[in-house]
Write a protein that binds this DNA or RNA. Structure first.
Length: 104
DNA sequence: TTCATGACCGTAG
DNA sequence: ACTACGGCCATGA
């Protein structure tokens, strides 16, 4: 493994379709539990380049928090297409769709 | 090395 | 559900 960023990207790539992970979860799995903000930055800047399933990453409340209106719509559409139920206000039920890297 | 920057997190009102 | 605040921390200039 390289550094935090590498592990984070790897973690994100391993989120299966139909599941989601929170920023904090990814950070923790990458070795830095309190570095959730870095995950946000990684997705913001490298999602296209690394072909990451960026739409499967949401915040700890299970809510979509993108600033851009268009991106929000896209993310919601992608999640729904994978079978995830998303409320109109952009909430996802983490109890049902949370992906646990360790399989718990 | 210091400084600003985030698609965050948890708590509180 | 919404806003406000303080805390956290890996990057890049």
């Amino acid at each position: 493994m390289e550094g935090f960023t590498e592990r984070a990207i790897d973690t994100i790539k391993n989120v299966p379709s139909g599941k989601v992970m929170t920023y904090g979860q990814v950070a923790a799995h990458a070795g830095s539990p309190r570095a959730a903000r870095q995950i946000a930055r990684i997705l913001h800047s490298m999602s296209a380049k690394h072909e990451l399933p960026w739409h499967r990453i949401i915040n700890a409340q299970g809510k979509i928090v993108l600033n851009d209106e268009e991106s929000r719509y896209t993310q919601r559409a992608l999640l729904i297409k994978e079978g995830i139920k998303v409320s109109e206000s952009g909430f996802v039920d983490l109890n049902l769709y949370r992906h646990d890297p360790f399989g718990n």
